[in-house]
Simulated assay, not measured.
Amino acid sequence: MTGPTFGSRVEHVRSRFSEALTQRLPPATQYPARLHEAMHYATAGGKRLRPLIVYAAAETLALDARQVDAAACAIEMIHAYSLVHDDLPSMDDDDLRRGQPTVHRKFDEATAILVGDALQSLAFRVIAREEALDPAQRVKMIETLSEAAGSRGMVGGQAIDLESEGKQLSLAELEALHIHKTGAIILACLRLACHAQPDLDAARCEALDRYGKCIGLAFQIQDDVLDIEGDTATLGKTAGKDEASHKSTYPAVMGLRAAKERAAELFCDARLALSGLGDAAEPLRWIAAHIERREH
């Protein structure tokens, strides 16, 4: 392997992404200023994990970062909108996100709803206007992101989650919930990068798909474990919320130890999925290790 590792450049990648995101958001002072200020607030900070996965996949496929800037921004806008709406009183009713007051607490509930609406629509506009992609690539990305974010993906998972409160789900039901709620958007990060690569061979697409499915589910199991073992200051959100809301989680269904073992198996499977890609997949291996050792 030659050149600096992805891990040694990750802060540069985050900085590049932040600049790309700022360029694609309306100026915070532009009319209606309160809404635009709240959109900037909602998208500030965080781990930027999903954009990092997009850029890591792009490097694995030998793409120029300019080919996936729009995809990375769109993914983060969808993710941010989902958090804003997830925190609302009618949903999870939370006061803290990324160590700061949630959008509906910082501004107001109506503004928070509109922020989510605006970020969701802006995500698709960003891809539709990306000059680094040809029209067919833009259409494919929009199709992929809309399915991952909609009723057959993230929003559908959220609906199942709300319907499941106070119920004891089976392991299969719980896995299906999280494949939709969390896994669909993480998988979309890999697929968007694939769409930016013309004539990508099926074998590499399948490898990235398998990796994305494993990482997405492992990430959610970790979230369930951290909700028990983490503290509010480290997590940047209210700890213990799942148990207080009587939600089915992996530790509740499998036991804490078994949940940790299942996550470890999925991280191993993710790395195995990349075995045929050689040194080119170093960025995605770094992502897997980074997620595996996270504390928030």
Score class of each variant (00 low, 15 high):
1 M>Q: 10
5 T>H: 03
5 T>G: 15
5 T>R: 05
8 S>G: 01
9 R>F: 01
11 E>D: 15
12 H>E: 14
12 H>Y: 02
22 T>D: 14
25 L>A: 07
29 T>F: 09
29 T>M: 08
30 Q>V: 10
31 Y>R: 11
34 R>M: 09
35 L>I: 06
37 E>H: 08
37 E>S: 14
42 A>F: 07
48 R>A: 08
52 L>A: 08
52 L>Q: 08
62 A>Q: 14
69 D>S: 03
70 A>I: 03
71 A>G: 07
71 A>T: 06
74 A>H: 04
89 P>A: 03
95 D>P: 02
97 R>Q: 05
97 R>E: 07
98 R>G: 11
98 R>H: 11
104 H>C: 11
106 K>W: 03
111 T>E: 14
115 V>P: 01
116 G>L: 05
116 G>E: 08
118 A>W: 05
124 F>C: 03
125 R>Y: 01
126 V>I: 14
128 A>V: 04
128 A>I: 01
132 A>Q: 15
139 V>H: 08
140 K>Y: 06
141 M>Q: 13
150 G>P: 09
153 G>S: 05
158 Q>K: 01
161 D>L: 11
165 E>A: 12
166 G>S: 11
169 L>D: 10
171 L>E: 13
173 E>N: 03
175 E>I: 10
189 C>Y: 00
191 R>K: 15
204 R>T: 15
208 L>C: 12
210 R>M: 01
211 Y>T: 09
216 G>F: 07
218 A>S: 13
218 A>M: 10
220 Q>W: 07
220 Q>P: 07
224 D>S: 09
226 L>D: 06
229 E>W: 00
229 E>P: 00
230 G>D: 00
232 T>V: 12
234 T>A: 14
237 K>W: 04
239 A>Q: 06
250 Y>T: 04
254 M>V: 00
254 M>Y: 08
257 R>I: 03
259 A>W: 02
260 K>A: 03
261 E>M: 06
271 R>K: 10
275 S>Y: 02
279 D>K: 07
281 A>G: 07
283 P>F: 09
286 W>V: 04
288 A>G: 12
290 H>E: 11
